[in-house]
Amino acid sequence: MKILVAVSKAPDTTAKITFKDNNTAFNEDGVQWIVNPYDEWYALVRAIELKEAAPDTIIHLVSVDDSGADVILRKALALGGDEAIRVNIKPTDSFSVASQLAAVAREGAYDLILTGKETIDFNDGAVPGMLAELLDIPCIPVATKLTVENGKAVVVKEIEGGEQTEEVAFPVLISCAKGMAKQRMAGIRNVIAARSKTIKVVEPVAVDRLTEAVSFELPAAKTGVKMIEAGQEAELARLLHEEAKVF
């Protein structure tokens, strides 16, 4: 089996989010970058688990970004994966990223493409569906389990108020969410080994810019919390009923 895992660079989950240039751009000053958690913890680790079960599996990583993402790709390669491909262009919107990934995926003829369910910066969750449509293959988004049985992928995905089990033949694209795999750390030996793995840099294809973020804003701060003494729960209930009118 040949697996392609798409990973992106994302700001650390504890990063303070601020904007610059009159709120038109994300302020990257002092931001620590990580592998997007969904890509790393779930998509990549599940791919590695599949390779551990079937050692002839080949795993390629791919990221659409400039050379600033090489450190992230090395970090991902330390967890596992045979080689990485970087499409040399700063990511803009979901469609541009999906289009670049499609070019790489066509070239590699992969059986399985794994992505995170979304990136934690732009939260579109749209790249998996767009990429699958561009490749004309099925896509199961927001999957929490993936096994290979009788040459097919058996996938559990979240639906409102529960989950659903689905079966699909390869090639298929699966976007991964919590539950898919157990988070793991790269050992020092693997970190060193990852330094000699290949990061192949490919040039981007031309893509139209369909959308662009023109400005950003932070959520309005709460005006102040109303504290109620323990023991006065009836007063809280009254406030929720009469003041906040939430029940």
């Binding site: 934690i120 732009f122 939260n123 973020a213 400005s215 950003f216 804003e217 932070l218 959520p219």
Partner: peptide, 11 residues
Amino acid sequence: VFSGKAFAHVK
């Protein structure tokens, strides 16, 4: 955007 920590106006 940013998982609920901000909003973007997207054209």
